[in-house]
Amino acid sequence: MSGALVAEVLSWAFIVAGSVFVLIGGIGLIRLPDFYTRIHAAGITDTMGAWLILIGLMFSAGWTLITVKLFMLLFFLAATSPLASHALAKAAFLRGLEPMLGRGLEIEGDHD
């Protein structure tokens, strides 16, 4: 009985925390000034937002096959989202999209 209550409370906590991170990612996607910085905002949604929501769903599902599927979904998201971000950033950089850098900073290293 109390075990179910603990699972319910944990599910609430994780899902609400995940929703907050998802919202922060969305705000960042609008607020940040250029493409390369927006990737970081999308990264918040892809990592903490998605993971916390999925972990919350796991607590709600309990020890069933559904939890295994949720874990698989978590694994796929964790494996594919950095690859997609990297492919985007690399394509943009090779296409010559100039990053907006901090005050007084220049691109370091030799890139043609």
Binding site: H40, S81, P82, L83, H86, A89, F93
Partner: peptide
């Protein structure tokens, strides 16, 4: 991939 997965840094 670990660099990209950590928000705040993206490997290009």
């Amino acid at each position: 991939n670990s660099i990209t997965l950590t928000p705040g840094t993206v490997s290009i």
